[in-house]
Design a protein around this nucleic acid. Structure first.
Length: 430
DNA sequence: TCTGGGGTCCTAGGACCC
DNA sequence: TCTGGGGTCCTAGGACCC
């Protein structure tokens, strides 16, 4: 029997921070988004205080102070590294692993369910022992059902959902049990059903996963399309979603960030867009891809509109003369577009750059305007920049237009150390 | 004062072609 | 008087995910 397991790290970012500060076990922790804007991860203790996902930090400052909540800025290099360690442990226990996101992976088992369950229990213990991060694992005949089983596994540990004591691993194969759980499972929590679909489904009286499972498939396809049809089939135990191979090349790459404050000056936007274009080039070269089309975006502050219906989003796309991942080129064209869309006296809050129609580096054709010689020199230069910046820290070498002041750039007051990613931050054991 | 970032897939509709 | 049909490609927008 083929079974899918979903392994999901509990409160991942908060758990990563706690792994290096064990004195925080049992204490409330929150992790903030870029710019220390919103709450994006909470420990169970913080959830119990009623701190919601996505709530702005300034709105809960008082609460945080009163309850001595520990606050962290997000430290993505640390979380990425922890994630890699956890996924590697999973690969020791299962030959078929799909890394789905930074804190989730699907595992495929072709074994009886009790064997799969035993393996997952061992895996869970190993991850906890090896990294200090608790995970929950749900096992079921399809990915969509495994997601639901995972919810049960997670709740079971903390609150005893449906009277289960799951120890972090829960298997959903028994039909009777499945119907019972699906009847008690809000349709909006089903994988693939977001807020918009929840609303339209409610109009037809479909409120739970069980309702959706039993809806007419022809009607679903006609009304909502093939994506939701797949979801319905998966709820019925018919696998429609296989384990996906790792993504080797992307279709779009984007870099966008909010600014620390409202930005009015063209010079500051020039710096910001230059830095974003630089980062874009790094990502492209990392994926060994090139782009021939860029879109530049600017958003004004939506919370401080100049007039009631003022436009807040400005963008324009430009075709490059040839596909490239060269930072100097990307900056050049980003600034050409910026100049076109910039309007003085607007309060810009966010900017971004998107590369689309990506091609593989190898497939990129030579061009008439750049000789092979120049192309090679650019490539060598980019290689040197990338390796210097990797070795001596980012921004060791950068283009002049990136500037140095960065009065606009992100705020991260509460960033933890790079325990596993920077030698200077390595833990010292006394 | 202060409100995240980065992706994917699907569909509808228009332009264009034979 | 009578005025087709079907295919492809592209883009914009909407839905979802973490």
């Amino acid at each position: 029997m083929t079974l899918y397991a979903l392994m999901d790290c509990n409160n991942f970012y908060a758990s990563c921070e706690r792994a290096f500060q064990p004195q925080l076990v049992g204490k409330p922790i929150v992790v903030l988004s870029n710019n220390d804007g919103c709450v994006i991860a909470r420990s169970n203790e913080a959830k119990a205080l009623g701190i919601a996902m996505g709530v702005p930090y300034w709105e809960i400052k008082k609460l945080i102070h009163e309850h001595k909540v520990h606050v962290f800025s997000s430290n993505y290099p640390l979380y990425g590294d922890m994630s890699e360690r956890i996924m590697n442990i999973a690969k020791d226990y299962c030959g078929d692993v799909e890394i789905y996101s930074i804190d989730e992976s699907f595992l495929k088992f072709d074994t009886p369910y009790n064997t799969a369950e035993q393996t997952c229990k061992t895996l869970r213990a190993k991850v906890l022992q090896g990294t200090g991060v608790p995970v929950s694992i749900g096992i079921a005949p399809t990915k969509t059902l495994a997601k639901i089983a995972n919810h049960v596994a997670k709740k079971g540990v903390t609150t005893g959902f449906s009277g289960q004591n799951t120890e972090g691993v829960f298997t959903l194969v028994d039909t009777h049990k499945m119907n019972e759980i699906l009847s008690d499972f809000d349709v909006s929590k089903v994988w693939g059903i977001g807020r918009a679909y929840q609303k339209s489904l409610a109009d037809y009286g479909i409120l739970t996963a069980f309702d959706l499972k039993n809806a007419s498939q022809t009607w679903i396809k006609h009304k909502f399309g093939v994506v939701m049809l797949r979801t319905v089939k998966e709820l019925n135990g018919i696998p429609c979603l296989a384990l996906e191979p790792p993504i080797e090349s992307r279709q779009n790459v984007m870099v966008s960030r909010s600014f620390r404050k409202d930005v009015y000056a063209f010079s500051e936007l020039t710096e910001a867009l230059s830095v974003y274009a630089t980062r874009l080039g790094e990502k492209l070269r990392q994926y060994k891809q090139t782009t021939a089309q860029l879109t530049i975006f600017l958003w004004t502050n939506p919370h401080k509109r100049l007039t009631f219906d003022a436009k807040i989003y400005f963008s324009e796309t430009i075709k490059l003369p040839y596909a490239t991942s060269d930072t100097a080129m990307l900056i050049h064209y980003a600034l050409v577009v910026l100049k076109k869309i910039y309007q003085p006296k607007l309060n810009y809050k966010k900017g971004g750059i998107l590369a689309h129609d990506l091609m593989s580096e190898n497939a990129t054709q030579g061009n008439l305007f750049e000789s092979m010689d120049t192309a090679l020199r650019h490539k060598t230069l980019m290689g040197v920049m990338d390796s210097m910046n990797k070795k001596y820290g980012k921004e060791t070498l950068q283009m002049a237009s990136c500037g140095v002041q960065h009065t606009w750039s992100r705020q991260a007051q509460f960033c933890s150390a790079g325990y596993t990613t920077k030698w200077v931050d390595i833990l010292r054991v006394k």
